[in-house]
Amino acid sequence: MGKNILKLSNVSKDYIGPLGNKVHLLENIEFDLELNKSTSIIAPKGAGKSSLLKIVSGLEQPTSGEIIASENFKKVLIPSEPSSFPWLSVFENVLFGNKKLDTDKAMEIVELVGLEGYEDHRPHNNSYGFRFRIALARALAVNPDLVVLDEPFTNMKSTTKEEIYSLVREVNSSVDCTFLIGTTNISEAIFLSEQIILVQKNPGKVFDKINIDLPFERSIDIMNDEKFIQIRNQIESKFRKLETNQLFSFSI
């Protein structure tokens, strides 16, 4: 059992819908995040995943419940759409959150995310993968305790996805920070995580948690591994057992 760095306790979220109706989005969400261990939240579309990730990131307030973390706990959100700033170069993007960052350290981060040689490039019109690397480097530059990824892989090509999955694992192993990933893709969640939280819809609440018993060092080939497939089937069957047909919102 690793060291807990963040705990969500009975987090609920209500909001007033466009027609003036009260929407009960999230109900009593509870989970812990362990240091340096990646956690994925799998939930169908519309289950309040993005709101939950924003609450964890401190961008939204829960209606009730609390988020317990140490003082000065630093969280950075990487949204689903490319968020690197197109008016700044790659290097300026990296320094955005930490202008005092040592140039050598900034270069180390640039190299870690695979952007060496692109320091002066502007990210506009570049691929989703390129822009994600910048957003990741910009996040790492502020020495975060937690990096929250809100489905940033959805629009990437499959080959890019594979590269980026490996990059996230590599960063997770070489930098002292934890990842929390929101996704609807079961394989992605298994590959990237040590822990998976399954969330159902209407209202969004945790109905199961699964620890991923796979080696920390993983290559993409592991997706064809028998154990990997077994975990995937296990997760699929858990969703199937739910009364609603929520699995239709998933990809595997």
């Binding site: 990131s57 961008l59 950075v76 968020s83 955005f96 910009r138 996040a139 502020v142």
Partner: peptide, 26 residues
Amino acid sequence: IKTEYNDAALSIKGDRDSDFYDVVYK
């Protein structure tokens, strides 16, 4: 305003930092 820029800047800088408003402006 593009929410992805807004959220990313807010998450890194918070709404008290002038850099956040520069992102909104850009």
